[in-house]
């Protein structure tokens, strides 16, 4: 839509402006890592951050959420409403924006998930472009998520003493229109400036995966029976479920009933679940269709690099690197994919 400038000194004012009408969440330091959390002002956040422990999907698909309340002995839910305030997710990286686009595809697909849909509508995305690669675990270059493309209302890019703001939606435009801290400028000049910044930025971003974007899905198509790689990953895996909990595109859930102490009623809700856990694919009779850790890990990888490509024409790996960063057994997505590619060459 259009571009404006924001002076770096006015960042706090920008947050204050947003807070007039929204709950604002942003990256905040937690020990040696980062999390998305509520902020009361610009000074609370750490805009230069590596991907947060859990991605900001938690604001749209909370770890645990009520699907509805019930009275004991009844059969229909009596209240399926949710409470939410309009929320700005501030400072989202492009990889996480891509993650939300993946979840949008799944949850908006017929039959659309009404909880996700309503929360999503209530969220404004203000992105923050990475000018440096975060660490050695990210694969955003291969996944092509290191440059802003779409999926945000406003994108901020660091341009020295100011930010360039790309206003990309009506929602974003309304926010910019409500403040007087934004500087209008010649659109072509800003575009040129942005182009120069990106030209300087791109050489700093190196490819970590050997196969290229186009080679990835064909590689997985041939790698299902690469038992050497899958068995090695399975042997090291402790099935802790960390890799799926931190993944911006994982969305599996379990449904629970929580009954009140007086047993008069309760709520039915859902909670994040993980295909890495032993019970996940077990049926009531006891049969487990992914009993081995190796087959569960393989399932995870295929849910990123193969199945969604067939189904939705989209990779469900954003290259954020969280699964590798969080794995205490040091199972690395980069190593796994490169090992698969190596096996392919050897054949």
């Amino acid at each position: 839509m259009r571009y404006v400038y924001l002076a770096k000194d006015d960042l706090g004012k920008f947050i204050d402006l947003l807070k007039e009408k929204h709950r604002v969440v942003a990256p905040v330091k937690k020990e040696n890592l980062f999390v998305f959390a509520d902020i009361s002002g610009g000074e609370d956040m750490s805009l230069e951050y590596i991907p947060t422990i859990i991605p900001p999907k938690k604001y749209i698909m909370p770890q645990k959420e009520s699907l509805g309340k019930f009275d004991m002995g009844e059969v229909s839910m009596k209240d399926t409403s949710i409470e939410m305030e309009p929320t700005v997710i501030f400072g989202m990286h492009t990889c996480d924006i891509d993650g939300l686009e993946c979840l949008d595809v799944v949850f908006h697909k017929d039959p659309a998930d009404p909880y996700y849909k309503k929360r999503r509508k209530n969220v404004t995305i203000i992105g923050y472009e990475c000018m440096f690669p975060c660490d050695e675990y990210a694969t955003c270059v291969t996944m092509d998520t290191h440059v802003p493309k779409a999926g945000y209302d406003i994108m901020m890019t660091d341009a020295g003493d100011k930010y360039i703001l790309h206003v990309n939606s009506k929602q974003g435009d309304a926010i910019i229109g409500s403040g007087n801290i934004f500087k209008e400028a010649d659109q072509d000049a800003i575009k040129k400036e942005l182009k120069d910044l990106r030209e300087k930025k791109l050489p700093k971003f190196k490819r970590a995966l050997n196969p290229g974007y186009k080679e990835l899905q064909p590689l997985f198509e041939k790698s299902y029976n690469n038992t050497g790689v899958w068995d090695d990953v399975g042997r090291r895996c402790v099935s802790c479920g960390n890799c799926t909990a931190v993944c911006p595109t994982c969305y599996c859930f379990d449904v629970y009933d929580d009954v009140k102490l007086d047993m008069s009623g309760g709520e039915r809700g859902r909670v994040w679940d993980s295909c890495q856990l032993n019970e996940f694919a077990e049926v009531a009779g006891g049969e487990n269709f992914r009993e081995e850790r190796s087959s569960r890990q393989r399932h995870r990888y295929y849910r990123k690099f193969d199945y969604p490509v067939r189904k939705h024409d989209k990779f469900f790996c954003t290259g954020c690197g969280r699964c590798t960063r969080t794995c205490m057994a040091k199972i690395s997505l980069i190593e796994t994919v490169n090992d698969l590619a190596k096996g392919e060459q050897d054949v």
């Binding site: 937690k30 040696n32 890592l33 422990i53 770890q63 402790v238 960390n242 969080t326």
Partner: peptide
């Protein structure tokens, strides 16, 4: 539950102790 403590730990967004 027959799943590990990590599942509940990660949902709380704790910094993993191995990380420290």
């Amino acid at each position: 539950p027959d799943y590990p403590v990590c599942v509940e730990c990660k949902l709380k967004e704790n910094v993993c102790l191995f990380e420290k």
